[in-house]
């Protein structure tokens, strides 16, 4: 990226998101709001750039899009599965805690992985160990813990690891 662009747009993604949210809030694309929203988004991301210590780099946007598609589909399936589990007999459920060893290192990657786990099939991420290497997960109903860990790692962690890398 060229130097002046980097100087005035330290976080281009943040600027775009803020602009989009402003336009959505006012539910309009009137020229006045386009300009006002842009000024706000521009100045807020410039003023707060000091608070964002680490840079977020998104590599391979296509993988990210595919990942979002998979997650949205999984959320739909998860809802039906969890609804069945909840409406069925709760005495038969086998809840359990387990650790997922993390290969992914970046804080953004870890937090998106934890959010994904919480939104998808019967699992909620509960705690991250101090050294950021293991994630404690609670499952509503789990028969085979190693299989579930394998699924989480292959389905969610692998694509996230490719997308979010150190800059």
């Amino acid at each position: 990226m060229r130097e002046p662009v980097k100087k005035f747009f330290p976080h281009p993604v943040l600027t775009l998101v803020l602009w989009g949210v402003w336009l959505l809030l006012h539910d309009t694309v009137a020229p006045g709001h386009l300009v006002l929203g842009f000024i706000l988004a521009f100045s807020i991301s410039l003023l707060t750039s000091g608070f964002w210590e680490e840079k977020v780099c998104i590599r391979a946007p296509l993988i990210l899009l595919r990942f979002l598609g998979i997650v949205l589909w999984d959320i739909l399936v998860a809802n039906v599965t969890v609804a069945k589990l909840i409406l069925g007999r709760s005495g038969k459920l086998k809840p359990g805690f387990f650790y997922v060893e993390l290969d992914i290192q970046t804080p953004v990657g870890i937090s998106i992985l934890a959010n994904t786990i919480s939104l998808t099939p019967g699992t909620v991420s509960c705690d991250l160990t101090e050294d950021r290497t293991r994630l404690l997960v609670h499952a509503l109903h789990v028969e085979d813990i190693p299989a579930m860990v394998k699924q989480i790692k292959e389905r969610y962690e692998a694509p996230l690891k490719e997308v979010f890398t150190e800059c």
Partner: peptide
Amino acid sequence: IGLYKLPDFFMRLHGPTKATTL
């Protein structure tokens, strides 16, 4: 319903976080 009938807190957590988002 999940919040009401499941037996412990960690299981109750699953109902609201998933079913209500959808």
